[in-house]
Design a protein around this nucleic acid. Sequence first.
DNA 1: TTGTATGCGTTATCAC
DNA 2: GTGATAACGCATACAA
Lengths: 343, 343
Amino acid sequence: MKLGQATIKDIARELNVSSSTVSRALKDYPGISDETKRRVKELADKLNYRPNAVALSLRKSKSFTIGVIIPEVVHFFFSTVISGIEEVAFSNGYNVILCQTNERLDREKSSIDTMLSNQIDGLLVSFSKETTEFDHFSKLMDLDFPIVFFDRLPEIPNAVNVTVNDFEGAYQAVKHLLEQGYKRIVHLAGPSNLAISKKRKEGYLKALAEAGIEADESLIIECPGGNEKESFDVTKQLFENEKNRPDAIFAHHDIVAAGAMMALKSLDLRIPEDVGLVGYSNWQFSSMIDPPLSTVSQPGFKIGETAITMLLEMIDKKRDYKSEPVQVVLDTELLVRKSSVRI
Amino acid sequence: MKLGQATIKDIARELNVSSSTVSRALKDYPGISDETKRRVKELADKLNYRPNAVALSLRKSKSFTIGVIIPEVVHFFFSTVISGIEEVAFSNGYNVILCQTNERLDREKSSIDTMLSNQIDGLLVSFSKETTEFDHFSKLMDLDFPIVFFDRLPEIPNAVNVTVNDFEGAYQAVKHLLEQGYKRIVHLAGPSNLAISKKRKEGYLKALAEAGIEADESLIIECPGGNEKESFDVTKQLFENEKNRPDAIFAHHDIVAAGAMMALKSLDLRIPEDVGLVGYSNWQFSSMIDPPLSTVSQPGFKIGETAITMLLEMIDKKRDYKSEPVQVVLDTELLVRKSSVRI
DNA sequence: TTGTATGCGTTATCAC
DNA sequence: GTGATAACGCATACAA
């Protein structure tokens, strides 16, 4: 702070009343004369009085601030989630403190520490790729501190969380490819330590199994980096050899799909005629590339909205999430575009 | 807050010393016996003591929190800026409170109010498209409240700000198109009330003038919405008629360029052979579309870094920005890709 | 209808 | 070396 902000005391002094009177007048407490109220409010207005939220936090042991831990802000999906969080927070009078971990565990831990120092009322978390043990979260949960996880699921019993149905999303995507007549479908998978990656892989496997196709482990390739270059290289190598060449790709991520698409083009393979392609996440660019990329859309904004709504309920103790833990699973939507339609 | 956090008082009570002693011991003040220090620190550790930043804020009239006002989080450029801000803030022990205005003035004003209530130490602002008067900012600046504007420049004398050289960026882009032999260059411009839009238009005009080409007002079309659909429609109409058809487009924004690209394709015009295309901002998708889009890249991360670094200097009064106002202008970079290269 | 006293957690000032 | 006290801004239990 910096501004010579007027306080309740200033108003009280000027009006020759006590600070309690001013405090009560400002909040329309019963038992204050209309005349006093009028004078107080008038002066408050004139002095541009603004309650000091910090003092209030201290007094009430409540800060109306929630912390958000996110791996990377520069990520279409996450920025959408943040947007949803911010909307609901704002309209409920809450502030949002944002920390990005850059996928690092130490950042995650120290960010949480700072936020706790700042007396946040609750925490929304999508933890880092490095996070494999969850003590720093479960300790807090044991103390009844409100936490809602989103997108990435911790291995903590009864953790309240919001995710999308990754299994179903992947299943639908691969089923769609099969219906289009593709047979040898590659899966460019995510880092195997993330639950979302596992779920997507399982969905892929289920669709194959249902179609009576035996899964070929050599067609499941991990692309943990999630950048174009990585999947470009992987794809190029995989499709170079004409013999027994795959005819479709299900990528765990649109960026990965984009890299694959470039690799296919560099090999003069046509999409969707020669190779079908489906991504994941519906990044903003996906509809703009050529051919437009089929993808599984995750409701990022809604994830954010849902997560913070639940968090606020926990904070206000409107619902007892302790006795009735909640796992919300939101539906994905398969967006069929040109890259996977050949019939 | 929520956790039954240990306070200095708790430690004092348990150790039968006064809170002042504990406070001093924890901060290695001189004049405290090593023995006491040891005992205090040990217990603090055991109780997982964490200083209450809210109490500190109140005491010190300083919150180590800065506010960020941004039009939209879901915007590649802005998310990059936020990322830069967050990095520097974190490493300097500052928190970031984020508010998005959704390009609305009322949101902007009320967000600032809440943030001020929360005793932020300073403000980073990219104001909304609706903002045409700047009293709500200049009032604060008159009171010496630290504000740094970025990307969008307010009409306030001596406002400290960080922008990119939009004039030069646009100039380079159009010059490049001219060098490639394009002659009738359309400018899909941004909202005319934003300084950045004006600058880009001026750069466009200068490049034309230098090449001895007279500007044709009918080739400058405003696309204030900045979405694909808008520019798709505009472009389609503009290029439908073969007679006197333009042969290049300089869009104020990659999304706008993407819409234009789709329109050109729908008219079976080839890029870059028939029509050259350059965008602005280097969105993540720009390198992945077909053909890859030439664009003017803005150093978003660096803008964020620079803006907050200056803000922290203002807060710490390391430099007197009042007597020596600063306008930092960062360079853009023209990324030449396929969409604009025909020779 | 209004005022007084106290405390939220911390630290600066003065005292011993 | 250490302790008591006051203050940051506000709300509230208790008095009057």
